[in-house]
Nucleic acid binder design. Structure first.
Lengths: 208, 208
DNA sequence: ATGAAACATGAACCAGTATTCATGTATCAT
DNA sequence: ATGATACATGAATACTGGTTCATGTTTCAT
């Protein structure tokens, strides 16, 4: 019942137009992927529709067959980034019983991900201005999952007691900034070293 | 000698025009402060010169008496933000002998600062796209200072040994994200609590 | 085959806005 | 007083770039 209504008037969003053919599907993907590269490289404002479509190898008007607005393609990228990151980390920590080990695996996976997708990484930051809602969703979803994980680990006695919400944000911040050091500031330090130092900090702190 | 040359051709930057009168000084400040509010609120692109000047209570042309370009006023804001933050933290940690205590004082000062200047905080993030150079300078300067402090504390045996560079970035990330939680996500958690939890994490880690 | 739906094109439209400029007005040293 | 310099104005300029549209072309069910 709730489902049938959603089709006619799109309870949540009018997504431009969804392709109905394999050809359309391919074109839409081409545009989306071009947008990722172009926006990631030049930023939202300097990335014109013309740039994006020419990178995708289609005419300018084609863009508006699949996206109703420039902002929409951006939002979609942010959403996709969120799903990808969470999926990547979930996969990497799958089956790791010890939380401290899971932290290490998660941090490693995250840093590898941002190295593989430097564009997407920058895009999320710009969302704070271009699409604040997407930005909030991105971080709040991530933080909520993180917090739940920490709380479970506390119950299990795998980590010390503490304010899981603040911890979640703080740990997220560590990953974020270390990722930025890699991608934005182009550090050549190997990921394994960064993870080792970062993880030691997370586990033991800095007290003598 | 070095000075006299600097005047004619500005070795470092042509700062639009520096005012030479108290009146000019005041106008320039008014524009800069209006720019902070407007850009902070609407973002760089949606903040037009018209918005800024009308907020400042001057005509549009007046802007170009003091700034040669829209980007320049932005850069100046980022630079100012950097100086302000570093100054604020330096002041707060002044004379605190123990590094662990200094961390707490610094984190508190930082969070209080971002609460007092939410606009400036957002502006720095946007610099990644609008003025990447200013962005890099901001974080690298901050990180370098942080790292030096950590290294000194290590020598003094006040904190454990570890990769000071990575630690500096990680700790910066904690402050950054906790500040964001406050300002962007409007958490109502009192700063003292956030600091307590964050500081405990920094000092002791999360191991059981 | 064939008509309709989906897809594609790129030139034209148009709104917004950064920047310039010709024309004033205030301030101050002499 | 008076000329010079700093400061202020706001309309005009110039250009960018998102979006639309009239016109094709491809795909596919029947």
């Amino acid at each position: 019942m709730a489902k049938s209504a959603g089709e006619a008037k799109a309870t949540l969003k009018p997504p431009g137009n969804q392709p109905k053919t394999a050809r359309g599907e391919a074109t839409r993907k081409a545009i989306l992927s071009a947008a990722e590269r172009v926006i990631g490289a030049k930023g939202y404002n300097d990335a014109s529709i013309g740039h994006i479509t020419s990178e995708a190898g289609v005419a300018q008007g084609t863009f508006y067959i699949y996206f109703s607005t420039k902002e929409q393609v951006f939002s979609e990228l942010v959403l996709e980034m969120g799903r990808l990151v969470r999926h990547t980390i979930a996969e990497a920590t799958q089956g790791v019983e010890d939380r401290l080990e899971a932290e290490k695996a998660g941090l490693t996976a995250f840093l590898e991900f941002v190295c593989a997708h430097p564009d997407l990484y920058r895009i999320v930051q710009e969302a704070l201005f271009v699409d604040p809602h997407a930005y909030r969703v991105y971080y709040q979803t991530f933080a909520a999952g993180y917090q739940a994980g920490l709380e479970a680990a506390q119950e299990a006695g795998q980590i010390s007691k503490g304010d899981a919400e603040t911890r979640a944000w703080a740990l997220m911040g560590i990953g974020r900034t270390l990722g930025e050091q890699l991608v934005v500031f182009k550090s050549d330090k190997p990921i394994s070293e960064i993870v080792a130092s970062g993880h030691d900090l997370i586990v033991n702190g800095i007290k003598p």
